[in-house]
Design a protein around this nucleic acid. Structure first.
Lengths: 242, 242
DNA sequence: CCAATAGTGTCTATTAGACACTATTGG
DNA sequence: CCAATAGTGTCTAATAGACACTATTGG
């Protein structure tokens, strides 16, 4: 109730720290992987965590997320890399030091050479999400980051059904088979290559042929495509039943 | 970059105010309506806004949203009323007084007798969302609340497709026709009553017959149902093409 | 009776999924 | 040649949508 309090009195509301945390997903060797950084300080010193940091006084939330992304990976949002807000986590006890509200963002990126460490000396790595979420005690992510990662993975899995975001995991030019392997890695299922091919090439706006071909996957040369303008898939790609 | 800053030094991060804003939706006389409150203080004094307020130092985000909801409407989340986090809005200039990050929540509720004013003297009303979003200058919502409302409405429209949330707009017992009028009001389309009936009664877990009937809508007596346990609809209810 | 709403049956065009088959490369 | 991947054709079961028809109330 803003009107019921004194909005100009700084003591009328409790101060919060606001951070952004990043769930950066990619597909590496048939596995869905997330970017993790090792914490250099307490709390959770030495544990793996999601990359993130404080929102500055003059930047908006997506700007802070884009800045952190570039600092951690060198990636710039847009131009093939997808960034969207995921959810906000504000349990009073989620950070033992102080009251921190974290606005998590989801990033989908093509396979990258190697994560680069941030400006400081922290190490960073790509880890299969299955491994990051499986871990019990000692290998588990810091703070509530396992929960955030799980939410981001579920968002990505769901979005592949009704949006064209799977192309964000692919290089600028890719084959239908490579796109299919993205779906298979994210969903963790095997898809029929023939029905998949017919479906994605028949969905208007999803794929645009570039005219080139490649044999980088072996076998018969495959047509190369780039992402079409469509963002919403109609009809959607349905995830097979469990 | 948490590790790169001094996390215990209060001057190392800028202080934020954190609020929750509520998009409370209901269906009244065939129209999708949202709860709006009139602002009693500057900025935007006298303008309509979404209900909301500061998050307290010891409560989590959904707790703050539930508290504000009860203060504004007397509704308690759960038991037929749906509350979920929507998105977070943090543009540095969204509030002229100070840096405020608002975690918006979406509430779906059955038709209510009348909104009750909050503890203070502010007035409150249900307004068709079409009217709140249509308005140019003088009737427009305060702050970035038009954007928040639009995002909430789009979330609700989308969720009716693949979840059983439409029942949150209905009283505890309702007919298939009443449920259909919810879909029609939220989506703004006309649906075939016969196909709709077959579809919702054929989706397992969506509706449970109570055994009673009613003629409150006129015509032949209709069976009464309550919401089944299902949260995800399979198959989904598809929104007709544009 | 008529108007209104509830509910069932049936037909058709479309689609998801299974799978046979051909095409084109490298080794 | 064989193995691997790409791509097309075809069949079947399920489904969305159109719409005829019957059922049961109030006025």
């Amino acid at each position: 109730m803003i009107a019921g309090m004194a909005p100009y009195d700084p003591s009328a509301f409790p101060p919060f720290a606001v951070t952004v945390d990043l769930v950066v997903l990619t597909v590496r060797s048939h596995a869905l992987c997330a970017l993790a950084v090792r914490r250099g300080e307490p709390p959770y010193q030495g544990r793996w965590a999601l990359p993130g940091g404080f929102v500055r006084g003059d930047e908006d939330l997506s700007g802070a997320a884009a800045r952190e992304l570039e600092e951690e990976t060198g990636l710039r949002a847009g131009s093939g890399v997808h960034l969207e807000q995921l959810a906000t986590y504000g349990d009073p006890k989620r950070d033992p030091r102080m009251r921190v509200v974290s606005v998590a963002h989801l990033v989908l990126a093509p396979d990258l050479p190697a994560p680069r460490a941030g400006g400081d000396a922290r190490s960073a790595r790509w880890a299969p999400v299955e491994e990051l979420l499986r871990n019990g005690e000692e290998g588990a992510l810091a703070f509530d980051h396992a929960r955030i990662l799980a939410d981001g993975v579920e968002r990505a899995r769901s979005k592949l059904e009704y949006s064209a975001l799977a192309t964000a995991f692919c290089p600028p030019e890719f084959t239908v088979g490579e796109l299919r392997r993205v779906y298979e890695a994210v969903w963790g299922v095997a898809l029929d290559p023939r029905n998949f091919h017919r479906k994605v090439t028949g969905t208007v706006g999803f794929l645009v042929p570039t005219g080139g071909t490649t044999t980088r996957q072996g076998g018969r040369p495959a047509q190369l495509f780039r992402a079409g303008g469509a963002t919403i898939l109609n009809p959607p790609m349905l995830r097979p039943e469990v």
